[in-house]
Computed example of a mutant assay.
Amino acid sequence: MHMRKVRGILSRSNGMNLYRGCTHGCIYCDARSTCYQMDHPFEDVEVKENAVELLEEALRRKRHRCMIGTGSMSDPYIPLERQLCHMRRCLELIERYGFGAAFQTKSPDFLRDLELIDQINRATKCVVQMTITTYDDQLCKILEPCVAPTSARLEALHACRDRGIPTVVWLTPLLPFVNDTPDNLRRILRGCRDAGVRGILSFGMGLTLREGNREYYYQKLDEHFPGLKEKYQKTYDNAYELPSLHAEALYRIFQEDCRRYDICTDQQQIFAYLHAFEDKQAGTQLSLF
């Protein structure tokens, strides 16, 4: 890792990233793409050393409370967080100043901050968003080698359910010829149902590849699935969007099962929920069915 001071931490939409780069090792990670102009090796995580101070300054200046989001580009619970505790300090500020929070992660490490997350959620709202791509833990170790397996993520979502903390799952990506099967999809959806997940975001049954992450992905296919890279190249050439050959059938399963389980799949509704600030003490609360 290396440290860097930054000028600001919150975007116009009140999102932030405490780190730049990642050590989860997910073979499909879009954040490796060269379009993001990262000037350091991806695994050499850049720590925004003054992020906590900048966040407090920004929260003090705000005239109206809102939701603070994080995790869109860099998981706030990468292993470095265990020693640095930047996310925890940010959550403490969010709780102290009465703001809401929504964060995206692949790690159950957020359970270390569960009491704090619960406090925020009791006063306003704190939404835990978990990425899940495959139900099989052994396959998960190949696709996402340096992060907790799916079973541990689902257990973490159960802990949220038991405390009434709302959760949303990002079901992305489904890798063609790897995990784009009806069985994998159905098992993930049943797991989400059992964990009380309120919404699932899917952006198509497939994945995207562009310069930077394509080369890394193909390198990992050669390593773990010999011959599959050539199948990708023959099927998709250099396309950005790589839909599963079974995309339509998978999407039908997704919609039908989520309707049966009462899980919201409407992207607009879910994002509106993630961004809507709630003051529970004042009786302002937005439900997500």
Rank of each mutant, 00 (worst) to 15 (best):
R63Q: 15
R63N: 15
H64T: 14
R65A: 06
R65H: 11
R65L: 08
M67V: 09
M67T: 08
M67D: 12
M67C: 11
I68C: 04
I68Y: 03
I68D: 06
T70M: 13
T70V: 07
G71M: 03
G71N: 04
G71E: 06
G71L: 07
S72E: 14
S72W: 10
S72D: 13
M73W: 12
S74M: 04
S74L: 03
S74P: 06
D75I: 01
P76E: 13
P76S: 12
P76H: 08
Y77C: 04
Y77G: 06
Y77D: 04
Y77V: 07
I78P: 05
L80I: 02
E81L: 07
R82Q: 13
R82Y: 11
R82W: 11
Q83E: 15
Q83I: 11
L84Y: 10
C85S: 14
C85V: 00
H86M: 15
H86I: 10
H86F: 15
M87N: 02
R88H: 12
R88D: 08
R88C: 10
R89I: 00
C90N: 04
C90G: 02
L93V: 02
I94H: 09
I94E: 10
E95I: 00
R96C: 07
R96G: 08
Y97N: 01
G98V: 01
G98W: 11
F99W: 11
G100S: 07
G100F: 06
G100L: 04
A101W: 03
A101I: 06
A102G: 15
A102T: 15
F103D: 01
F103P: 03
F103W: 02
Q104M: 10
Q104L: 14
K106V: 02
K106T: 05
K106L: 01
K106I: 01
K106W: 01
K106D: 08
S107P: 07
P108C: 07
D109C: 09
D109E: 13
D109L: 14
D109Y: 14
D109N: 12
F110K: 04
L111M: 10
L111E: 10
R112Y: 14
D113K: 02
L114P: 05
L114H: 05
E115L: 14
L116S: 07
I117D: 04
I117S: 08
I117Y: 03
I117W: 06
D118S: 15
Q119H: 15
Q119I: 11
Q119V: 12
I120F: 09
N121V: 05
N121T: 03
R122L: 15
A123G: 12
T124F: 10
T124I: 09
T124V: 12
K125H: 08
K125V: 05
C126T: 01
V127S: 07
V127C: 10
V128G: 04
V128M: 01
V128R: 02
Q129V: 11
M130N: 03
M130G: 00
M130Q: 09
T131C: 08
T131P: 02
I132R: 08
I132E: 11
T133K: 00
T134L: 08
T134Y: 00
Y135W: 13
Y135V: 09
Y135F: 14
D136Q: 07
D136G: 06
D136K: 09
D136R: 08
D137F: 10
Q138W: 09
Q138L: 11
Q138A: 13
L139S: 09
L139H: 00
L139G: 09
C140Y: 10
K141V: 00
L143T: 02
L143H: 00
L143V: 07
L143D: 00
E144P: 02
E144R: 04
E144V: 06
